[in-house]
Amino acid sequence: MQDELTIETKQATEAKTDDNNIVIKVEHLQKSFEDNKVLKDINLTLCKGENLVVLGRSGQGKSVTIQCIVGLLDYDEGSLKVFGKEIKELLEDELKEIRLKLGFLFQSGALYDSMTVRENLSFPLTRVLKMKDDSKINQEVEDVLDAVGLKDAIDKMPGDLSGGMRKRIGLARTLILKPAIMLYDEPTTGLDPITSKEISQLIMDLRKKYQTSSIIITHDLACAKITGDRILVLHEGKFIAEGSYKDLEKSQDERVNSFFK
């Protein structure tokens, strides 16, 4: 697995050098909530096929960054381009089109709790892709559930699922629209170490299967180590370090080093 990771990291680094491969480009992004400036100067690029981990303590603005990327929050200053389009300048329908290419896994899974797993997964197919053929919808739902290893949970209610299962189903619901970019908001938070490892491994497997580029927000080092081609360390609204897990492990910066102790 380590060899595979090394190859993937190399591919991602090579891809980074080519500007045409950039799918997300963020420059000097700033965001405040009243007097609290959460994002001070965010700069990042995500390349095609890359897994970028944003590592940081709670309250540093990690989730705010990806919520700005997906257009859930407006940013105050700076530029944020997804597939070359400035998010702030998009009209409602244009933003919807961009969002179709973005998958977002929420911290809690955010499953619709009045619907079964099947209904949760078929919801985006019927509402967004306007699919009407029930057999086709069922096939898609079963395929994606198979990919996350939860085919048996198809008729369960979200309330009957464990935290790890909810995240897997949330992931399946996102993947069913076949996004080009996945944004993971703390995918392993609140899970035991074994389930966390399984989710991290699943992120890698799904990247291979669905050919996605990903931004993974986390403060879980094990997750960062497994999933990250490149890691950015966020501290007080700015990135203070960038590199592979191995590079950052050797960092002399106390703020970075404190993660790896």
């Binding site: 859930l72 929420f106 955010a110 619709y112 985006p124 619901r173 996102t174």
Partner: peptide
Amino acid sequence: SMKVTEQISAMEVSSADPIQY
């Protein structure tokens, strides 16, 4: 409760229409 548990945001980011639904 849907807002707090991010279900409405999940609809928005998947390009579904929470106002209509």
